[in-house]
């Protein structure tokens, strides 16, 4: 074999190897999805979804729990996160110490394992503030957990708004506040919404934080935000470890569908709002 032929052969081998690995990845991903669907779908029924938790288990408390935790976390994290990002991009010098400090802080925060947020939430809300196990304590802890993510991606969306548009609006006599509300935020809206939805995804799939903050009470509808509760992810864990494998699988399917829905929504919003935004630099 000449050197050239060897090179071609090596390139072909690498290609075959890469294709094989791609196939393996797809196989594993689809394998998981198919396996979960196959084990869970047959066991989804009205009793599990919307029935009262009695002789047979139900995920009604978890649906309510996950919904309230998600809303709570977003309602808290969105204004704080967007406000912080606005401050960083519109009101501080690009290279100031403050920005660097906040960035390091937020990177550190996003690297902390979620169980550590959990123990923080437990000690602060359940113990020190006397909430006991509560959806409120869990929601606030989750909000703190997703805050760095929201700040970071909002900041990126704001930075992507062309400077020329800021200049154009100021040159037309707009105040900074008007510039932010009529130009900068609308232009960054798709990115901000997408980041909030992805943050919601993290909240929905989180379990470690919640074990320590909301208490995993699977069989009672929470009466208020101060009640203990459960979530879809916690129900999967609870059913799995307490002799309800079928319900665990079925809840897994529900969780999977919710997450796929969330991701599709993020893509969809990116498409709807993303048009034209970056057409001039």
């Amino acid at each position: 074999m000449t050197r050239h032929q060897r090179q071609i052969r090596r390139a072909q081998l690498l290609r075959i190897f890469a294709q094989g690995m791609l196939f393996l990845t797809l196989l594993m991903l689809s394998g998981i999805v198919i396996f979960i669907l196959a084990s869970g779908l047959p066991h989804i029924n009205m009793q599990l979804l919307f029935g009262d938790y009695g002789k047979y288990p139900s995920i009604k408390p978890a649906l309510l729990g996950t919904l309230s935790l998600t809303l709570l976390a977003l309602v808290i994290a969105a204004p704080i996160g967007i406000g912080t990002a606005l401050f960083l991009t519109e009101y501080t010098r690009t290279r100031s110490h403050l920005i660097r400090a906040i960035r390091i802080a937020s990177e550190t925060l996003s690297g902390i394992p979620s169980i550590v947020y959990g123990i923080f939430g437990y000690l602060v809300f359940a113990v020190a503030l006397g909430f006991k196990y509560s959806l409120l304590g869990g929601g606030i802890t989750l909000a703190i957990m997703i805050l760095p993510l929201v700040v970071r991606s909002t900041e990126e969306s704001l930075l992507a708004v062309p400077q020329s548009l800021r200049e154009a609006s100021l040159a037309l006599g707009a105040s900074k506040v008007r510039m932010i509300f009529t130009i900068v935020l609308p232009c960054a809206m798709s990115g901000i919404l997408t980041s909030l939805i992805l943050a919601a995804g993290r909240v929905i799939s989180e379990s470690a934080v919640l074990i320590l903050t909301i208490g995993m009470v699977v069989n009672k509808m929470p009466e208020s935000l101060m009640s203990p509760g459960t979530s879809l992810a916690l129900d999967v864990y609870y059913f799995g470890s307490n002799g309800y494998p079928e319900q665990a699988a079925a809840t897994g399917v529900v969780l999977l569908i919710v997450m796929i829905g969330i991701n599709l929504l993020a893509v969809f919003l990116g498409k709807v709002f993303g048009k034209g935004e970056l057409m001039h630099g």
């Binding site: 062309p162 020329s164 548009l165 200049e167 154009a168 609006s169 100021l170 040159a171 037309l172 006599g173 707009a174 105040s175 130009i183 232009c187 034209g276 935004e277 057409m279 001039h280």
Partner: peptide, 19 residues
């Protein structure tokens, strides 16, 4: 400054219509 910019308008090098 706002009143100044009302009196003194500006057109930029690259067309920059708002989206």
């Amino acid at each position: 400054v706002i009143q100044l910019r009302k009196t003194v308008g500006m057109v930029f090098q690259k067309p920059n219509p708002f989206p």
